[in-house]
Design a protein around this nucleic acid. Structure first.
Lengths: 133, 133
DNA sequence: CCGCTTCTCCTACAACTGTCGGAGGTATCC
DNA sequence: GGATACCTCCGACAGTTGTAGGAGAAGCGG
């Protein structure tokens, strides 16, 4: 009885990312994308990852033509949420605000992004004030 | 030639977190903290983690009294930065703004936090406008 | 001094992850 | 129809992580 909870390794995540950006892929498609990115892996390595991802329930496959076509079932949005949640709980004591502050302080944003942020914050401010009175 | 880059497992991170919150600790200190948190581990398990963390360079130990005292050398701030960086690069294509937006949209903040955010954004807005003109 | 508690050191082991090779099927191209 | 090119399936292996037990040193209460 050691580990039981399936996680995503970084290499597996890289495969998933290909599926997100390229849509349904065969093993070879994924392999080629990875090669384009400078990531050299053997064909069977990619195949292993895809199989394991399927076992973990993060992708699904269909054999319509000659080869299996794999597609992500775990969406990037879902993974984002889950990763952010565990980041916040593990390193920020569950409080998201310090993370937001850190991000804003340390990252460069474009004017557009700042605009959006501004709008959002104003909105927050508004609702908060409302609900408070 | 498989993996080479040392990472922090979640269990190891939990140990580190104890060190951050409690300061320098012996194996037993850590064990007790974990027990208080409802985390049941054997004494030697904790010891193994501490040893491994030391090998990875994330903690250091001194034997001043009877037992070794372990102290984190990796700060929470540093780890936060590194984790956030890899989160952003792996799941947000390197752009922090969408993460900020996501956080703001999905999290509840206190008035104080909103205040701070507001101030910060205003500041950003300012500098951005300045440097732009 | 003797046993009990506590520490350290070493070893172990199962599950998970990264990485691949070989065996064997099928389609394809002269 | 045999060589060529792919594809799938299965097994393998080393390194990492989670978890712990046993052997042996060292201090403490009686």
């Amino acid at each position: 009885m050691a580990k039981r909870q399936y996680e995503l390794g970084t290499a597996e995540l890289q495969i998933l990312r290909v599926l997100w950006s390229a849509g349904p892929c065969t093993v070879r498609d994924v392999l080629e994308r990875l090669h384009e990115q400078g990531r050299k892996l053997a064909y069977t390595t990619v195949q292993t990852f895809l199989t394991r991802l399927e076992q973990k329930g993060f992708v699904q496959s269909d054999k319509t033509g000659l080869a299996y076509v794999f597609e992500a079932t775990l969406s990037r949005t879902r993974l984002r949420k889950s990763r952010v949640k565990s980041l916040v709980s593990q390193l920020y004591d569950g409080a998201a605000a310090p993370l937001v502050l850190q991000l804003i302080r340390s990252e460069q944003f474009t004017k557009d992004e700042i605009q959006k942020l501004h709008a959002l914050i104003d909105e927050l401010d508004q609702t908060e004030t409302d609900s408070d009175s």
